[in-house]
Nucleic acid binder design. Structure first.
Lengths: 350, 350
DNA sequence: AGGCGGCATGGAAGCGGTTCCACGTGGGAG
DNA sequence: CTCCCACGTGGAACCGCTTCCATGCCGCCT
């Protein structure tokens, strides 16, 4: 009786018709399990006749190898994890995340590797996550949107689990491969664009400073201003969200009413900034020019359409996926980072 | 030699230190594998001493059960699929999807069930997906954003795989449980709100008509207009995206220049509509009132902030997750749909 | 005092694959 | 005409875990 109430049991009477096994395929094809297995896995050392027999048995029965059984012996899981170390909401809503998903799933489309979404909340959950990663439940991991204090980097570097970061990891642990856009150059180019457009009092709404993208874009902004002999005082932090961008713009206008150019480290923050600027009576781009960062869709539907820096997330994540697949295959390609260039998209806000 | 180049092999020399096995735990605890197993799985019929010994052995070794081995015998995978039958981009970018992910991961947070993202492209891919679902690779599935022509519904209904739809399935197959917001009522309430606000020439930008949400919201709009004795001619279709909303609004203004109220079946489409309205010199809400649907964040940051209908996606998906867990546990709860009410959020656009 | 039921325990049989190895067979080289 | 090798094949061992079942022990009832 006790056993009946344990959770996780198949409901009584629901006995699903068992999926066909290799044994059955072999029987139907008139060969041994070994031969059937070989035929299914690429057909080395299998005669054409046997191969054909197995193929048709597979088709007849609608056979799919049992993943668990296969994993048990090969120690491969045919699945990789997308690790998102963040308290939900913020990241998931960001078009950046959608792009990652899209790129990654594109890289995986041709394979039959599955994508496991690992959302690591802070605290205890992180422990659960790293343990999951270490213990061979996945063949590899792509890490996105990670912060300085994530234990992930060291754990992953130590674990030898194939992994690729989307966005530069904090510690440049050797062997932690990553793809990224050149955020520093992006920040510089964006700012230079504002300077070239005639702005002289240029502020930035920075991203989180515990993320490489936040720091690097800020550094680029600063460098451009210093090179031009302009002040780099007008800096306010945001967290990449529209709300934070609006709040930041408010503070910025209070502290520096004379601002005539704003580099927002994300388009979402730029959106927030735009609405505050409009609300407080500054015309864009006439009074204040605004440039964002990301160009992931939102930029075209703002008023006015947003001039911004390209962040090729989809492509980057696709590459990340491919690099990961190479690592998993043991093809010792270069572990160099793959950095994408900085590119301005001029629309109407600057 | 041939074997060496086969993909998927662990790189030579990368021999990861094997994760501890149950065998080792048992040895260290001085008990048999059977006892160790029992101790780990809830401790029925195991003495306190044995339990303690096993517990500490587990802690010392950092033992995690090998999922594949466990799956092989229990026929449970401890993972569920989130099925997204859509050509990427469109869905993934939608805040609706982010909400789903958030709700679902909340439902799963307490368990150690993993979430597998199954993005089913059209055509052949669908076949791959359904096969994957049928063949016991997951314990259950949550389906989101599905369309009329998806083969999914019948496949899932036939397969007896526990599953829950987020959004009403087309065919009301018995046993296909779902959660949804009352879209029909939502459309009606939204339209009634416009009527109450004085609009007399009310258009709608409908969603895709191969999705239940699209059809139902449209039906609600129509009903409200008929009840009020108003014309229900001004209907244009969109696909839930901002771009489509803008295009729709353009056509709407061309065909019905006298429109004074618009019900957009999604906030994103409302955003597109707003920008077109502004561009074509109609003031919102003075000249034209606009009401959207979803209230998932975008609505607050538009200009003017969008009056809209609540779509409690996060909560819905959390419930969907919980229902799925119940189904998997074999707790034969009611398979009735869970419908969330319709609720207007009044901001400034209507 | 003897028998009996209950309980913790270990042994062993699988779950469904992959892969090592030994075996038979046929063809080419010595 | 042997010998050997290469090749396709089937047998069998294992991957790590759960669970059935037999066993031995203890306490209790008659």
């Amino acid at each position: 009786m006790t056993a009946d109430v344990r959770p996780g049991r198949r409901a009584p009477g629901t006995a699903a018709p068992h999926a066909p096994t290799l044994e059955q395929v072999a029987a139907r094809a008139g060969v041994s399990r070994s031969t059937a297995s070989r035929a299914i896995n690429g057909g080395f050392k299998v005669s054409p006749e046997a191969q054909a027999a197995v193929d048709s048995a597979v088709a007849d029965l609608g056979y799919t190898p049992n993943r668990a059984a296969r994993t048990l012996v090969t120690r491969r899981t045919d699945s990789i994890a997308l690790v998102v170390p963040e308290p939900d909401e913020k990241v998931l809503t960001d078009p950046f995340f959608a792009g990652t998903l899209q790129g990654l799933s594109a890289a995986l489309a041709e394979t039959d590797i599955q994508l496991i979404l690992l959302i690591a909340r802070r605290g205890d959950e992180v422990h659960k996550t790293t343990r999951y990663l270490r213990n061979g439940h996945v063949d590899g991991a792509v890490v996105v949107s990670h912060h300085r204090d994530d234990a992930l980097e060291s754990v992953l570097a130590a674990s030898r689990l194939p992994c690729v970061f989307v966005g530069r990891p904090w510690s440049s642990q050797p062997g932690l491969q990553y793809v990224d856009v050149n955020n520093y150059l992006g920040g510089r180019r964006a700012t230079e664009h504002l300077i070239a457009a005639g702005c002289r009092r240029i502020a930035t709404i920075a991203g989180p400073l515990d993320m490489a993208a936040g720091v690097d874009r800020l550094a680029g902004w600063r460098q451009a201003l210093q090179d031009a002999g302009l002040s780099d005082e007008a800096m306010v932090r945001g967290d990449f969200t529209a709300t934070s961008g609006a709040a930041a713009m408010d503070r910025l206008l209070d502290a520096h009413p004379d601002v005539d150019g704003v580099f927002a480290a994300s388009d979402l923050m730029a959106v927030g900034a735009l609405s505050v600027l409009t609300a407080r009576g500054r015309a864009v781009p006439t009074d204040v020019k605004v440039i964002g960062f990301d160009d992931l869709g939102v930029a075209v539907s703002t008023a006015p359409p947003l001039t911004t820096m390209v962040n090729p997330v989809v492509e980057m994540s696709r590459v990340a996926g491919e690099l990961l697949l190479e690592q998993i295959a043991g093809l010792a390609g270069s572990t160099e980072p793959r950095i994408f260039g900085a590119q301005v998209v001029v629309r109407q806000s600057a």
